[in-house]
Design a protein around this nucleic acid. Structure first.
Lengths: 106, 106
DNA sequence: TATCTTGGTAAGCCATAACTTACCGTAAGT
DNA sequence: ACTTACGGTAAGTTATGGCTTACCAAGATA
């Protein structure tokens, strides 16, 4: 599991909507499907993807299954994003002049 | 522009690799394509998507085009993620008992 | 036990998007 | 001016993945 799956999971609008729908409080599959245009099985499939990405967790509640947000995946994503906040690429601008010279080297 | 595009942009492995490849310092299209298995036009197309998502910016440098990371898109994504750090969904667990009762209401 | 509800899985369809080759414009070098 | 290098765009192909219907298993209710 890694940020790969998390990005993939949250890339789909419907899936992201389901995820956001879970923000306030945990919901059952039925509840989630009710607020969605797609069919219930589709919602189930989306939830599976979200679960694999560690973005939601399930808690069987009798007949139903209660899904809730799991911050773990989000944390993973946050850490990933933080890697891009270094300022190493400010001094490179002038370097390109040098690059312009050596044209055909492997 | 919104986090929608950013998620979509970073969901693709190749595109994310290109993006990560830009982390150290700005690069030209040729440089980026060299470290990639896909063709150069493919890289160009990916760069377009990244640019639309405000994740990279271009700076024409004579014949070449120098691409560099743009933190703007990342910031947008960070803000989005922060919305999920509220703890509103802790008290809901008991609520499900009530939900169990009203089964068939619209 | 028979029935209803909830929800996960399978199979198949279809739309999107990632990739390719081909082409073109523009800047550099001779 | 001609040629080469760089890189964006177009058109067409293919593969991925999101959706549907159909089905099935398990718990709840009578």
């Amino acid at each position: 599991m890694a940020y790969q799956d998390i990005f993939a999971a949250l890339a789909d609008p419907t899936r992201r909507q389901i995820f956001e729908n879970l923000r306030d409080h945990p919901k059952t599959v039925g509840e989630l499907a009710k607020g969605q245009t797609v069919s219930r099985p589709a919602v189930s499939q989306h939830l599976r993807v979200l679960q694999d990405a560690h973005l939601v967790s399930v808690e069987p509640q009798g007949n139903r299954r209660l899904y809730s947000i799991k911050r773990e995946g989000l944390k993973e994503l946050r850490d990933y994003l933080d890697c891009f906040w270094s300022d190493a690429f400010s001094a490179y601008r002038a370097e390109i002049a040098k690059v312009m010279e050596n044209k055909g080297e492997e």
